[in-house]
Design a protein around this nucleic acid. Structure first.
Length: 293
DNA sequence: AACATGTTCAACCGCGTGTAC
DNA sequence: TGTACACGCGGTTGAACATGT
């Protein structure tokens, strides 16, 4: 790929160039201006320019900032690079089970509103969360031959994926800390959206907690302070979170079988391998309710 | 070792909304 | 009030990398 190919001057992003010292000064036409703009991966020099400028002058109007910093980039590109990569508090690396659970829960609540979800997860960007959803979550939906937005898959998430994440978090916390930070809850199960809540706060210094409520019990997982959340401290909940290995990789059939063997609290799952299930034919929620009465 | 296929993620694009004039 | 411009969001793309054959 040519990283220096001409900028597809679309809409308003091209408009601002006229007010900038460059490249208009040397350009003879709009086309020539476009040629001077860089696209593609950022170099270390560009990163340094951008970070240095923001360190000195702070964030501001991105188009002006791009010019002032001497970057041949659009303001839009500078903003994205800063927010998704250069920002000091941006957290890199795999999502912990706590974060995975939070993403699933928040997506239940807000859908594809990635920036809204990211607001509840200090250090994580909307782009990262969106990528996680598209690559990991949608992959599982594909494996199960159902749509990621279907009730069918949502039920599987709620009754299989999320409880397993809770189990992992719980197990890791038990192993890591002598004094349990989790109150006991029998075989965690997301009974319904109404009985599950996630309470977080992105305010610096305040605690970020993940609260899962059950009909008769309450499991409260204190993930940690905002500081810990965005740093290595989030792994204090256990060794299992050191690596965000995808717990369901290639083992959906095993998990479905396991879920059916869980005893009285189990939910009967359809045979996904047949790939014939339809939203309007069954619902884990309905089956669960039937099981209760 | 070489090629094919799948996965990840940084970056781009277009559009809707906010804001200044 | 209308217009122009900037910002931010969600969707999409494609190069780099990983894994399988």
């Amino acid at each position: 790929m040519d990283h220096f190919d001409s900028f597809g001057s679309t809409g308003m992003d091209a408009v601002w160039m006229g007010s900038c010292g460059w490249p208009a000064a040397s350009a003879t036409s709009g086309e020539q201006e476009a040629v001077d703009l860089r696209r593609g991966p950022w170099t270390m020099e560009e990163d340094a320019l951008l970070a240095g400028h923001i360190a000195k002058h702070g964030e501001g109007r991105w188009n002006e900032l791009a010019c002032a910093a001497g970057l041949r980039r659009t303001g839009k590109s500078c903003r994205l690079r800063w927010l998704n990569y250069l920002r000091p508090d941006v957290r890199r690396g795999d999502f912990t089970p706590q974060e995975q659970l939070l993403i699933l829960e928040l997506h239940f609540r807000w859908g594809n509103r990635w920036s809204r979800i990211a607001r509840e997860m200090p250090g994580r960007t909307d782009n990262e969360i969106k990528n996680y959803w598209r690559t990991r979550v949608q992959k599982h939906a594909k494996q199960l031959k159902c749509d990621v937005d279907s009730r069918q898959f949502r039920d599987v998430m709620r009754h299989l994926w999320m409880p397993r994440l809770v189990e992992r978090i719980q197990a890791a916390a038990t192993a890591a800390t002598p004094a349990p930070i989790l109150e006991h809850a029998p075989s965690p199960m997301y009974h319904s959206p109404e009985t599950t809540t996630v309470t977080t706060s992105s305010t610096a210094g305040s605690s970020v907690s993940l609260e899962v409520q059950f009909p008769s019990n309450q499991l409260v997982m204190t993930v940690g302070s905002a500081t810990n959340w965005s740093g290595a401290g989030s792994e204090q909940c256990g060794s299992a979170s050191a690596r965000s290995d995808d717990m369901f990789d290639g083992s959906w059939s095993e998990l479905l079988a396991r879920a059916c063997d869980d005893g009285a609290d189990s939910v009967v799952f359809p045979n996904f391998e047949l790939g014939e299930s339809r939203d309007d034919k069954w619902s884990l929620e309905d089956i669960w309710l039937q099981h209760q009465y």
